[in-house]
């Protein structure tokens, strides 16, 4: 059993009287990649906020490793146009990284030579790469990625996940990511957590992908059921026509 970086036990989060998350028991170990999937409003981002400590859980236990160092890539980051910020300055916030390290991180993320640009002028994909490069500075042991491939094209997303895989190998860090694209992250993920207020199911991606809970959650079976119903209806109409003919 590898060392646990972060662990929660029957965690619940309330927004006012609304129960957003309940009975969440999960853990992330060293070098493990965990993907959290779930429909809109299933509490994925809330779970992340609880993990980084932005939200106090209303009940349950959350324990972190004493040497936990989090690298966080938010879902969206809007930088106000009144705030001047070069990529280089942004990478050094909070500061103290040697310039070579910053250059290397940017090169590795596929966005070299951007360091003098204003963050505002970057495209969505470039900015997302810069965010990842920043999160990787200072060698974190837990990476939290909240739909980090938003705004990346297919190739960009594939590159991104490949880089995550490399980083895991190199730094040996644990990774938790939120994603919609199970088929894309499948190869890079050790474990999938299916979330809808609570943990519906979890396990290896291949197992979760065919589990009835996962299919029900994303309405995969419903589409088939609807198709089936439609066909039935069609048959029925045909039948009545035949019957009508019989009468005439």
């Amino acid at each position: 059993m590898s060392k646990k970086l972060i662990e929660c036990e029957s965690l619940s989060v309330l927004y006012g009287k609304r129960r957003v998350l309940h009975d969440i028991t999960m853990s992330v170990g060293v070098g493990e990649i965990v993907t959290v999937i779930g429909p809109n409003g299933s509490g994925k981002t809330t779970l992340f906020k609880a993990l980084i400590g932005a939200i106090q859980p209303s009940s349950g236990k959350l324990s972190k490793a004493s040497d936990l160092k989090v690298g966080y890539v938010p879902q969206k980051l809007h930088i106000d146009e009144t705030l001047p910020m070069t990529v280089k300055r942004f990478m050094n916030l909070p500061g103290g990284h040697p310039p070579e390290e910053v250059t290397e991180a940017l090169t590795h993320a596929g966005v070299p030579d951007l360091d003098k640009q204003q963050v505002m002028d970057l495209s969505g994909g470039q900015f997302q790469r810069v965010l990842l490069a920043r999160a990787l500075l200072g060698s974190p042991n837990l990476l939290l990625l909240d739909e980090a491939t938003q705004g990346l094209d297919h190739r960009g997303a594939a590159d991104f996940y490949r880089q995550i895989g490399e980083v895991r190998k190199k730094l040996g860090c644990g990774v938790v990511m939120i994603s919609h694209e199970l088929h894309v992250v499948m190869r890079q993920t050790d474990r999938v957590i299916c979330l809808n207020g609570h943990i519906c199911c979890q396990g290896e991606p291949e197992v979760v992908g065919i589990s009835p809970e996962y299919r029900a959650l994303f309405g995969l079976d419903k589409d088939e059921a609807a198709l089936y119903l439609h066909q039935n209806h069609h048959d029925h109409q045909c039948g009545s026509n035949e019957r009508g003919l019989d009468h005439v």
């Binding site: 906020k49 980084i52 932005a54 989090v70 690298g71 966080y72 705030l83 916030l93 909070p94 500061g95």
Partner: peptide, 19 residues
């Protein structure tokens, strides 16, 4: 300064960096 800037950019980013 750093904490102020980072939490101005994004509160969650600040939290993740320990501010």
């Amino acid at each position: 300064w750093s904490g102020l800037l980072l939490s101005t950019l994004n509160p969650d980013l600040a939290l993740a960096s320990g501010f």
